[in-house]
């Protein structure tokens, strides 16, 4: 298994390295002098020079890259000139909000997929099948932000029962009940497409699995259909489902940006939106790098989990 994971490492390292160069290059590609942009319209030449020095723009390119990379690794992220404050603390507080949102969305998506996917694959009633097919198609087809607007309209305006934006004023931890209310709509929006994809994948691979000879063996030996479905077959599709979940990370990260924008949720997505409209490039760079790192780390984690769940990989070492 270790060798299986080790073989994944080089490609992930390449992704990180190339991405970091690309993201670093971003600042150099911006038309005009980034220092001037960052300093603002009526900054003194001294202020511009100070920013230039702080960003290392007065040094050779390779040196700048290494300086920037060293800053990232040591978490010395510098200061934000436009949004204001240290980039580290800005990202830190936003990350907390985003993690809460994405974690609850993923949890919802996984639970829904496990329940509905199994039900969908196991049902012998045509109407259940049709109902779930329709609901699933909609869940996948309706874009996150479109759903966000629709839910905000429905529960904020038509039936005003839930907060449609922002976070509790007293902080997330003050009253979990209130926090849950604020969290509910964005979580559903973010979870729906991921859950839809996962449910469909789970149901389809379960159906494939149910046509496998070992299922007939189990059924013919008197094991009940329910047990074969939820114990034997489900256990078989978990490894690959996990990989699919890992591949959905991109959709969740991208979706989080849109959802946070829609519901004014002060996470990474809001921060990145503010940074981009303010042309605060150092912040954009850090956030892009963060997104790529999360993506890569999750890939590695799902690969590891996949390997753990599949004895053919865990014990075989190859494949």
């Amino acid at each position: 298994m270790t060798s299986y994971l080790l073989r994944r490492l080089p490609s992930l390292a390449v992704v990180l390295a190339v991405s970091s160069v690309l993201i670093f290059g971003l600042l150099r590609l911006v038309p005009g002098d980034p220092a001037v942009t960052l300093a603002g319209a009526n900054a003194t030449p001294d202020a511009v020079a100070a920013i230039r020095h702080e960003l290392g723009l007065d040094r050779p390119v390779a040196g700048q890259y290494l300086h920037w990379l060293a800053g990232l690794v040591t978490l010395d992220l510098g200061r934000s000139h436009i949004v204001g404050g240290g980039i580290g603390s800005l990202v830190g507080s936003a990350l907390g909000y985003t993690l809460l949102l994405t974690a609850s969305a993923l949890l919802l998506a996984v639970v829904a997929a496990l329940v509905l996917g199994t039900l969908w694959a196991g049902t012998r009633r045509p109407w259940v099948d049709h109902l779930l097919t329709g609901a699933n198609t909609l869940a996948i087809a309706v874009p996150t932000f479109v759903l966000g607007v629709a839910l905000a309209l429905l529960f904020g305006v038509v039936f005003p029962v839930l907060p449609t934006g922002g976070v509790p004023r007293e902080g997330l931890l003050a009253d979990p009940g209130i926090t849950a209310q604020y969290l509910l709509l964005p979580t559903i929006c973010l979870a729906l497409p991921v859950g839809g994809v996962l449910t469909r994948y789970l149901a389809e691979s379960l159906r494939t699995e149910l046509a496998q000879p070992y299922v007939v063996t189990a059924l013919a030996a008197g094991i009940s259909r329910r047990r074969v479905l939820v114990r034997h077959a489900l256990r078989n599709v978990l490894p690959t489902s996990l990989t699919v979940l890992g591949l959905q990370t991109g959709a969740v990260l991208g979706g989080a940006v849109l959802i946070e924008f829609t519901f004014s949720w002060p996470g990474i997505g809001m921060l990145i939106e503010r940074a981009i409209t303010g042309r605060d490039y150092p912040v954009v760079q850090v956030l892009l790098m963060l997104s790529v790192t999360i993506f890569v780390v999750l890939q590695l984690l799902t690969d590891a989990a996949h390997a753990l769940l599949d004895p053919r990989i865990r014990l075989g070492g190859t494949r």
Partner: peptide
């Protein structure tokens, strides 16, 4: 080869 559950 396929009559047994591969992950148990």
């Amino acid at each position: 080869s396929t009559a047994l559950n591969p992950v148990e």
